[in-house]
Simulated scan of single mutants.
Amino acid sequence: MTAPIPVFDGHNDVLSKLLRGPAGAETRFLEGAPDMQVDLPRAQASGFAGGLCAVWVSTDDQTLDANGDLPPVPQPAALQQTLAQAALLHRITRQSNGAVTLCRSAAEIRAAMAAGSFAAVFHIEGIEAATPDLDLIHVLHAAGLRTLGPVWSRPNIFAHGVPFVMGHDPDLGGGLSAAGKDLIRLCNELKIMVDLSHMNDAGFRDIAAISDAPLVASHSNAFAICPHSRNATDRQLDAIRDTGGLVGLNFGVRFLHPEGIRDPEMGLDVMLRHIDYLVERVGIDHVALGSDFDGTFMARQMRDVSDVQHLLGALARAGYSDEDIAKIAHRNWVATLERTWGQ
């Protein structure tokens, strides 16, 4: 049997989903849990070698305001959830007996993948837990934080997250606040990758003007195919290409389907259309995977990590070379992180 192609993925919501589920989160990840899309046994069996493990703050309040925005999360509640998820990632790593590695450099990612250890990168999706003094960023960096999205799709003190709107481009809301601009400068100083997924257009432009690092959208698709506000426009894709950045394909159906519908029967051909478009627009060296496993609705052909190899097989049948598939599967992510982190 041919060995699976190693996959390093740009986004999953394992941590928040584990903590919202039954007790024993560490055991559920390490020994397997049927309600999860990513767990260690299935990852090991399918060549899913690691990825950016997101800390995401949940809230019961889903009431939209007059602008279509979700309400901001109070900072104390966000801090509690952020620390709980960060601690969970550290406990999983410690209890795994080497089967999971918390990686802080590209060299550590490569070493973990070579050893068959799940290469986890500590990522935050929406930094509602921080205050304008940014002291928390220094503390979290010391705890392993290496990538950060200033917002999820709701406003916070740093920026205006793009609302979920089908049929509208991401030009919704204002740009970075003064604190948000300070945040980007600090991320550059600490070599924390800034993730542009969930940024609106004004925030994207502000970050592009400030940042000296490659522009990255970890889990966004082509707006030209699926006109959803969460997807990247041609102008944004060009900016990503011009900085040597990266865009990761989101597996979520509503960000893939041209009509934005939650179609459980959507085929891999739609994912291929997005990959083809992204490769044509930004180049093969700047396209990767950003699944959004355990964080969004997916089609039956992409049930969990076990199905990612089917997508890679579809790329091979579509004419992509082994080298190109390896780039999309893992090499582009590791190379982009190395350029951003400088190690």
Rank of each mutant, 00 (worst) to 15 (best):
V216T: 07
S96I: 05
V14Y: 03
A159I: 01
A43I: 03
T63C: 07
G245N: 06
T243S: 09
T63M: 00
A159W: 03
A114P: 03
E31D: 12
H257P: 08
Q309A: 12
A115T: 04
E265R: 12
T2V: 05
G126Y: 00
A49S: 08
D171R: 11
R20E: 14
G144Q: 13
I225Q: 00
D169F: 06
A217D: 09
R235S: 11
G161K: 09
H160Q: 15
V279T: 11
A179C: 13
D294T: 04
I5Q: 14
M166G: 11
F255C: 05
A106Q: 02
D195H: 02
D242Q: 13
A143C: 15
V162H: 10
L70Q: 13
N332R: 11
N97I: 00
T59H: 11
L140R: 14
L134H: 10
T82R: 04
W341H: 01
H123F: 07
I261D: 09
V247P: 14
V38D: 07
R154A: 11
L190C: 07
A142L: 10
G203D: 15
V100K: 04
A45N: 07
G116C: 12
S153C: 12
R300G: 09
Q62D: 09
M199E: 15
N332H: 06
D263W: 01
G260V: 11
D285H: 14
F122E: 00
P41E: 12
P72M: 05
R241Y: 00
P4N: 02
L40N: 05
T336H: 02
A25D: 04
D234T: 14
G203C: 13
A43F: 06
F164Q: 11
R331M: 07
G24H: 09
A78W: 02
L88T: 06
E108D: 02
I92S: 07
R230M: 07
M166R: 13
S117C: 06
Q236H: 13
R20F: 05
A49C: 04
D13P: 04
V216D: 03
I92K: 02
S16M: 14
F118E: 08
R262V: 02
G174N: 02
A208V: 00
Y277C: 15
N200M: 05
D242Y: 01
D292H: 10
D242S: 10
V55C: 03
P163N: 09
D206R: 02
A112D: 08
R20K: 11
F223T: 13
N221T: 12
G173M: 06
H138I: 06
A66D: 15
L312I: 00
R185Y: 03
V14E: 07
T2W: 08
L249H: 05
D234Y: 00
D324L: 13
W341R: 13
A115Q: 09
G173T: 00
L289I: 12
H168C: 14
R339I: 15
V270N: 04
P155L: 00
D292V: 08
L312H: 10
A299W: 02
F223N: 03
M166C: 03
W341G: 06
N221R: 02
L289S: 05
I240E: 08
I275N: 08
R281A: 05
V100C: 06
A209Y: 00
R154D: 07
E338H: 01
G180R: 02
V247Y: 10
K181A: 12
S211E: 01
G283A: 04
H286S: 09
S321Y: 07
P150R: 15
A299K: 08
V282G: 04
G174Q: 03
K327W: 08
R28A: 09
